[in-house]
């Protein structure tokens, strides 16, 4: 089951990656959007339908979990499975980045 979920999420959409990355700290959907906007200099804007859909799907697949409600807004945090997938994705992106600079990765 977990293998299947990993296959679905790797590679991840940009939106998915940013959401999962932000949820290493507990927060709600709208604030994730605000932070992502800030950290990408306004380049990545996540609309509400995409935000809500991605959060529901990630919750269903066990990458994140609902923690509590604050001001009627649901707050989520990453799960160990989500963390594992995030790290795999970070490694993949790092490899991609290094290769994009013309660097070769030897070994393995």
């Amino acid at each position: 089951m977990e293998e299947k979920i990993k296959r679905v999420y790797i590679p991840m959409t940009e939106t998915g990656f940013y959401i999962l990355y932000c949820l290493q700290v507990e927060m709600h959907g709208y604030s994730i959007g605000q932070i992502v906007k800030e950290m990408t200099g306004g380049e990545i804007i996540i609309s509400p339908g995409t935000m809500y859909g991605t959060l529901s799907k990630m919750e269903k697949d066990g990458l994140i979990r609902f923690v509590r409600e604050e001001d009627k807004r649901k707050r989520y945090i990453i799960t160990p499975l989500g963390q594992e997938i995030l790290e795999m994705e970070q490694k993949r992106i790092e490899r991609l980045y290094r290769n994009s600079k013309g660097e070769f990765i030897h070994g393995k």
Binding site: T15, I45, P48, G49, T50, K57
Partner: peptide
């Protein structure tokens, strides 16, 4: 308004999901 504000979805992956 930016293009991202015009739709409730910001990527095709979530439009497909819907």
């Amino acid at each position: 308004m930016k293009t991202d504000d015009l739709s409730i979805f910001s990527d095709d992956a979530s439009r497909i999901e819907m």
